[in-house]
Write a protein that binds this DNA or RNA. Structure first.
Length: 458
RNA sequence: GGCGACAUCGCCAAGCGGUAAGGCAAAGGUCUGCAAAAUCUUUAUCCCCGGUUCGAAUCCGGGUGUCGCCUCCA
């Protein structure tokens, strides 16, 4: 398997630290708000990464952290006039709800930053002792000049950072690019005791500490959005390696950005969509198809027409699942032969090539086409097996059943409307026949002055 | 100012030196009482200009254009 590694800027053969096991860490949400459609990209993509490794027979340990203490939470807490802990609880809950709605399977661990404060303090202490971090007035900074490898992930040079116009001016820092490890608490802010006084950890420390605790000092894959390369991941590497790790992670994977109609999503442009909002209009699989139809490292553009296209494409998969009457063949015994395995191989080699999900999806379409020609139900099993790797057709039985129950209400209303037409025409014979026949299947009609009501009685 | 990515049919998109996958949309045919589904057929030489090569969408150089990072951000 080849994976594009941001550290080397090229595709590399993936070699796990322990054969048959994959340890991965992906930066999760800061729970200060509902997550937006752009946040859904790494959630869906790394869900697929995990699935694929498991499909190949690996035992995967997947960690996705929850940042529940941060400037933005504090700001939100002030805005909503609710304690930080309640903000965090509210949006953590919402995060899991939205993930479920998007059919993203949970990680193995969801560590919260506030549960690892002591470990973070220990790490910061160690860095201070090693003279690679320094304290000023209750704040602790990491000294980038004292860490030779700084910039190796993002390809930035410390001097360029200094020259850049956008580096924050802070007289306390030795170097403008030094980043905060520990922040002194202002009054009223959540705080923890530390050797440097009351305060809270900076954002970049938590991921180092939590990954170390749950995955060990060096693990296989660290993932996240492309915007996290700098400074977040760069700073993680600096802390981890300054404190004795040879490598924090062997492979760094970053997904590209999502734009809205060609522009960056932002509140000021009024093109900001939460996943929650999108889910009101479009189903999880259409959204997933939209993301996976493009390579994860490319930027992707979100707009109404493109998601409708995706929806149409997904619908075509469901057409054949319904037509094949999957529910009745699902328990059939079957064995793949070479003709079937050819598609499986194609699918796997697409995915092996740095997770080429777009190519993998095209294999799914090839399978549907072949099924339509041959009507060989094994192709349906194959379609579902491979589709599942991408997160499609999950809980397929339930969905096919639900679809029927969803439609049944509308169906009964439809029949009732026909009966109302017959009543208007005084065609009592037909109207009564409909009522009697419905009763036979347990649907009881009542004609009231407000109209026809119905209920299920069995 | 520094760093980087991308440019392939109407739209989305794969392609990683050997002669342009796939999806959506559209048009026509078959099938059909009519629809739907299915099926067959049709639609690009890959932003421009040079170069390397027997051979380039794919490599190199130069343009043009779009986007991103350098500040919290997936």
């Amino acid at each position: 398997m080849n994976i594009y590694n941001t550290l080397s800027n090229r595709k590399e053969e993936f070699k796990p630290i322990t054969q048959g096991k994959v340890k991965m860490y992906v930066c999760g949400p800061t729970v200060y708000n509902y997550f937006h459609i752009g946040n859904a990209r790494p959630l869906i993509f790394f869900d697929v990464v995990k699935n694929f490794f498991e499909y190949l027979g690996n035992e995967v340990t997947f960690v996705r952290n929850i940042t529940d203490i941060d400037d933005k939470l504090i700001q939100r807490s002030i805005e909503e006039n609710i304690p930080v802990s309640e903000i965090a609880a509210k949006y953590t809950k919402a995060f899991f709800e939205d993930c479920r709605a998007l059919e993203i399977s949970p990680a193995d661990h969801h560590p919260k930053a506030t549960e690892y404060i002591n470990d973070m303090i220990d790490l910061i202490k160690e860095l201070v002792e090693k003279n690679i971090a320094y304290e000023v007035n209750g704040d602790v900074y990491f000294s980038v000049s004292d860490f030779p490898g700084y910039g190796k992930l993002s390809g930035k040079k410390i001097d360029d950072l200094k020259a850049g116009a956008r580096v924050e001016a802070n007289k306390q820092k030795k170097h403008p690019a030094d980043f905060t490890l520990w922040k002194k608490a202002k009054s009223g802010e959540p705080n923890w005791s530390s050797p440097w006084g009351e305060g809270r950890p900076g954002w970049h420390t938590e991921c180092v500490v939590m990954s170390r605790k749950l995955l060990g000092k060096t693990f296989d894959i660290h993932g996240g959005g492309i915007d996290l390369i700098f400074p977040h991941h760069e700073n993680e590497i600096a802390q981890a390696e300054a404190s004795g790790n040879k490598n924090l992670a062997n492979y760094w994977m970053h997904n590209g950005y999502l734009n809205i109609e060609g522009e960056k999503m932002s509140k000021s442009l009024n093109n900001f969509f939460t996943a929650r909002d999108i889910l009101k209009k479009y189903d999880a699989e259409s959204i997933r198809f939209f993301f996976l139809s493009k390579h994860y490292r490319s930027p992707i553009d979100f707009n109404e027409s493109i998601i409708i296209e995706s929806k149409q494409a997904v619908k075509n998969f469901y057409n054949i699942l319904k037509e094949s009457d999957y529910l009745s063949i699902k328990d059939n015994k079957f064995e793949y032969s070479d003709v079937h395995l050819k598609y499986k191989d194609e699918f796997i080699s697409a995915m092996n090539n740095d997770f080429n999900t777009a190519k993998a999806i095209s294999v799914l379409f090839d399978i549907t086409k072949t099924y339509n020609k041959t009507k060989d139900p094994i192709y349906i099993h194959l379609l579902i097996e491979l589709g599942n790797v991408l997160g499609f057709f999950m809980n397929i039985e339930e969905k096919l059943n639900n679809e029927i129950s969803d439609i049944s209400n509308e169906l009964i209303d439809l029949i009732i409307n026909y009966r109302i037409s017959f009543k208007k025409e005084k065609n009592w014979k037909m109207a009564d026949a409909i009522r009697n026949d419905l009763k036979k299947i347990g649907v009881v009609l009542k004609d009231t002055p407000e109209g026809t009501e119905w209920s299920i009685e069995k």
